[in-house]
Design a protein around this nucleic acid. Structure first.
Length: 939
RNA sequence: GGGCGCAUAGCUCAGUUGGCUAGAGCGUACCCCUGAUAAGGGUAAGGUCCCAGGUUCGAGUCCUGGUGCGCCCA
């Protein structure tokens, strides 16, 4: 008999499964995706949840340009996890992905490809090329998002270039026009005087140039700080753009900086000069002309200058001193020449103080007749020396010198650009208290993390009016007709709605392709403004206005089947300034309420050192390549394992660690499936709960706790808590404990016996629960597992149609759980003792050992004694005795382990006293003899 | 320069209202098993809790100031 160990092995119930240990995700995932597409799983889910409470995660549209990167992956995977979870919880949670298709980067790309040809092309032609470019990337990104396993209505996404969407944008605009939010105002923008075109920040290239820098004395008129005493005093300003002096209306100082009034003698003219400038810059400025003798007359804070006025040096204009935080004592004089028509900061300050925005310069960079006579018709750069000469002539030029500095140039013309004020369209944030209303609406939204609220609060609270016009071709036109004779501009709610309907039928291209006569809206009086005098506006809307209108264009659009307000907006934290803000502003202005109930933000993907991940930085991991190499489920598990509220660190090492975690989870399922292979034929209705052993009940109690914890984590979008909890459960509670302990029962007991069936009952529960709770994170693997799940007749067609698990109250047992804590502690001590024996080469497996526990704690001894059989089982040792020694002071237990003196059962490998008790099976223990007897009779 | 954040073992995370001899899993090292086997089990080592002050009997936890990193703005 000693030679036929093999036949005994064949009487064991060893695991069998078709579920491969090797995931092979890169091959399998596309197959599952194809299958889901074929069976229209997304449609099935919609159908299954029809009529249930709706929870819409409204997709923020990524820009249709370039391949997806890790930031996209993070964002889309988080969204998909949310949507899948909500669906399993029974909500109707549709997901309509979108793309932001208009805007500068695409137009810029097209213009670059066209080169010099672009100049002569019609807007319609450029727009057609832009559309092709945008749609190309929509296609590419869509495939890449789908490859990540993101579930949604990919065949019907929303596109901002879609006719319906364009109409939606104008619908919002019409509301805002109707309510009086939209107005026109001058604003300085970057202007290329060579190409006669407006430029965006992204179209500027900075190059070194030499400019004439001048120090100019502007005489104070009134309100100077009293410490200065009697005048005359001058404010000394410094500028590198003398040509902007005709537009000077103010001088800016920093309120907290120290300023001084100094008296010195001009070494050339011998005249005494009294000038005010920043205290920190006096020595530097005077040394420019070698002046060493100086008297400080007074010293004061910049704030004291606020009420003073001055006389413009060559214009009959009184300017005023204003306060600005951007003023520094780094260079210049600490007093900044301010021309709101010729600078971005100047403009902001001008808005704050209600200063006029002067810009007496035409599109070619020549002074208009609003400028002084001696400048009219001259180009601004040509005029620089003339302005300097004039200053000198007037005796207000303290000093001049050439300065080498970086200056913006047009990307195409390569020529220096200027700031020039042009009329732009704005949305007033003060009109009808829009700012205040928005702040109230912000207060009613749930911001996650909570600091998101203070962030957007500060941004909305401090933002200026919203400039919504752009001088570009690729976007939705601001549909305004201008009468060239009178200058009248027609933009009314009626006209905008007229174009809305037109765009809905023909798209925004109609504005460019149709004649003016065809575009006359019903409320425009052509007797007053004859058609021949009308021209079409060439401005388009800011793309943030476009995407910010998605609550109207998408959520309110019946064809998408969504609703408003959205349950959730989920984007990176940069969108507090971007989409969240543009959305809530337009929504509050148009509808009076926020478009979302909850706003969840995530951080940015950074590298392993916490540095930003950038293509140019050489530290970027390609999302597309990583997916091809590791599989979407691994990356999804990786994303789900990190707290995205902060920056998300991603590295090759991290992905490898995620792969290991994935394999551990996968193997746990493989083991569950391997032992459930014959469970399909088992009727669970015939199962007696009473057959469950104590460890099984304990396990089901643990599973309840797991369900509760994981559900709570999903509810608060803390997926990392969920995935880590599940992972540790698989590793600690299952693999290294419960499933390990279960082996003896699963393998050695009778296949159909109550002992093994009880174990399988628990394993089936574990399997079913875990696969459901993991499905949002690893949808492909979950489906693969679900396919192989026993009792396939009653289960849904896909795990993604299943419902979220709930704890089973019948397995709540606090007494049992507490007792098991003690038992597991005892087990820990026993394992340490076994390791000692192993080191001494006394034993290999635990089964070879016999253990004695000694304790002076009577209660503990009693508890252990009454659970002796259980403890024996969970430690997998062959023998166990508990000794209570009352005299000793070892309160804790002591473990004595030794090699078992029993013989090894050839079938179950336990060392038992009963081995040899059967004549028929002399190498087996009594249990195996009993099982074999039944086995034989069954067969 | 300003606003909003973040900083605990190699990695990912725990550490309620200040009481910690700072925990978990993974990874690592070593060992066992060979009936989950490109698997499984065990044991162990690993931290001046970013730095410097302060409050307190006591601070990873509170305050102040730095440093580094991210987003947004200038």
């Amino acid at each position: 008999m000693s030679t036929n160990a093999k036949p005994y092995k064949e009487t064991l119930n060893l695991p069998i499964t078709k579920f491969d240990m090797k995931a092979n995700l890169t091959v399998k995932e596309p197959l599952f995706q194809a299958r889901w597409a074929n069976q229209d799983l997304y449609g099935q889910i919609r159908e299954a949840r029809k009529g249930q409470e709706m929870r819409v995660l409204h997709d923020g549209p990524p820009y249709a340009n370039g391949e997806i990167h890790m930031g996209h992956l993070l964002n889309k995977v988080l969204k998909d996890i949310v949507v899948r979870y909500l669906t399993m919880r029974g909500y109707d949670s549709p997901y309509v992905p979108g793309w932001d298709c208009h805007g500068l980067p695409i137009e810029h790309k097209v213009a670059k490809d066209l080169g010099s040809k672009a100049a002569g092309m019609a807007a319609t032609e450029i727009r057609a090329l832009c559309q092709v470019e945008a749609m190309k990337w929509v296609g590419i990104q869509r495939d890449q998002f789908k490859r990540l396993g993101v579930s949604g209505d990919w065949d019907h996404p929303y596109l901002t270039l879609d006719r319906r969407y364009e109409a939606g944008i104008l619908d919002v605009l019409a509301d805002l026009v109707e309510k009086g939010y939209v107005f026109r105002q001058l604003k300085p923008i970057h202007w290329d005087i060579h190409d006669r075109t407006a430029l965006a920040e992204a179209e500027l290239e900075y190059e070194e140039v030499t400019s004439p820098s001048v120090f100019v004395l502007f005489p104070f008129k009134t309100g100077m700080p009293s410490a200065l005493g009697d005048g005359p005093w001058s404010a000394m300003i410094w500028t590198t753009t003398p040509w902007t002096l005709p537009a000077n209306v103010a001088i800016a100082a920093h309120p907290n900086l120290d300023y001084v009034g100094v008296r010195f003698v001009d070494p050339t003219t011998g005249k005494t000069i009294q000038a005010v400038l920043a205290a920190a810059l006096v020595d530097k400025v005077l040394s420019l002309r070698g002046i060493t003798e100086v008297t400080e007359v007074a010293r004061f804070k910049g704030a004291e200058l606020e009420s003073s006025t001055y006389q413009h040096v060559f214009l009959p204009r009184t300017g005023r001193l204003v306060m600005a935080d951007y003023v520094s004592a780094e260079d210049g004089t600490g007093l900044v020449h301010t021309a709101p028509g010729h600078g971005a900061e100047d403009y902001m300050t001008g808005q704050k103080y209600g200063l006029p925005t002067l810009s007496p310069v035409d599109a070619t960079g020549r002074f208009t007749d609003e400028a002084p006579d001696w400048l009219v018709g001259k180009g601004v750069f040509v005029a620089n020396p003339e302005v300097v000469a004039k200053l000198e002539e007037l005796g207000v030029l303290y000093h001049q010198m050439p300065l080498r500095h970086s200056y913006p140039h047009g990307w195409r013309s390569k020529k220096p650009v200027i700031f020039r004020a042009t009329a732009q369209w704005f949305i007033s944030v003060e009109h009808q208290g829009l700012r205040a209303q928005t702040l109230v609406a912000i207060n009613g939204v749930r911001w996650l993390p909570s600091w998101g609220k203070s962030r957007i609060d500060a941004m909305v609270g401090g933002r200026p009016d919203w400039c919504i016009s752009r001088q570009r071709a690729w976007g939705v036109p601001i549909p305004v007709l201008t009468c060239e004779l009178t200058g009248y501009q027609h933009l009314t709610a009626t006209s905008v709605r007229f174009y809305r309907d037109l765009f809905r039928n023909e798209g925004a291209n109609a504005w460019y392709s149709r004649s003016v006569a065809e575009l006359v809206p019903p409320d425009l009086d052509t007797t007053k403004y004859p058609v021949e005098n009308l021209t079409k506006g060439t401005d388009i809307l800011d793309v943030w206005f476009e995407s910010g209108s998605s609550h109207r264009a998408v959520l309110d659009e019946p064809t998408y089947g969504l609703n408003r307000p959205a349950y959730l907006y989920l984007e990176g934290s940069d969108q507090h300034r971007g989409w969240f803000q543009s959305s809530i502003l337009t929504s509050v202005a148009a509808n009076g309420v926020a478009p979302f109930q909850t706003v969840l933000t995530h951080g940015f993907v950074v590298d392993e050192h916490g540095k930003k991940m950038a293509k140019s930085g050489g530290n970027a991991i390609s999302a597309v390549k990583a997916t091809e190499q590791y599989g979407a489920d691994v990356l999804r598990l990786y994303v789900a394992s990190m707290d995205y509220a902060e920056d998300v660190r991603m590295s090759e090492k991290g992905i490898k660690e995620a792969s290991e975690a994935y394999r551990k989870i996968r193997n746990t399922f493989r083991y569950l499936l391997g032992n459930l292979e014959d469970y399909a034929s088992f009727d669970p209705a015939s199962f007696e709960v009473a057959d469950l052993q104590e460890i099984d009940r304990w396990m089901l109690g643990q599973l309840n706790a797991l369900i509760r914890d994981v559900t709570a984590a999903y509810e608060t979008f803390d997926f990392y808590r969920a995935s880590q909890r599940i992972y540790q459960f698989c590793s600690v509670d299952l693999s290294s404990f419960y499933l390990d302990v279960l082996k003896d029962r699963l393998y050695a007991e009778a296949a159909q016996g109550a002992e093994r069936r009880a174990a399988q009952f628990v394993m089936a529960k574990l399997h079913e629960t875990l696969v459901t709770m993991l499905a949002p994170i690893m949808p492909h693997t979950a489906e693969e597992i679900f396919d192989l799940t026993p009792r396939s007749a009653t289960k849904p067609a896909s795990v993604h149609l299943a419902y979220w698990p709930t704890p089973d109250p019948s397995f709540e047992d606090a007494e049992l759980a507490a007792r098991w804590d003690t038992l597991r502690e005892a087990r820990e001590s026993i394992l340490v003792a076994l390791e000692g024996l192993r080191k001494e080469k006394e034993i290999g497996s635990a089964q070879e050992a016999a253990v004695a526990i000694v304790t002076s704690d009577a209660k503990l001894a009693q508890l252990l004694e009454s659970n002796r059989a259980t403890l024996l089982t969970i430690c997998m040792v062959s023998d166990l005795v508990i000794v209570h020694r009352s005299g000793e002071d070892n309160q804790k237990l002591t473990v004595h382990a030794s090699k078992s003196t029993h013989l090894k059962c050839e079938r179950c490998w336990n060392y038992r006293q009963t081995v040899g008790g059967s004549a028929r099976h002399p190498s087996l223990c009594d249990r195996c003899v009993r099982v074999l007897a039944a086995f034989t009779s069954e067969a």
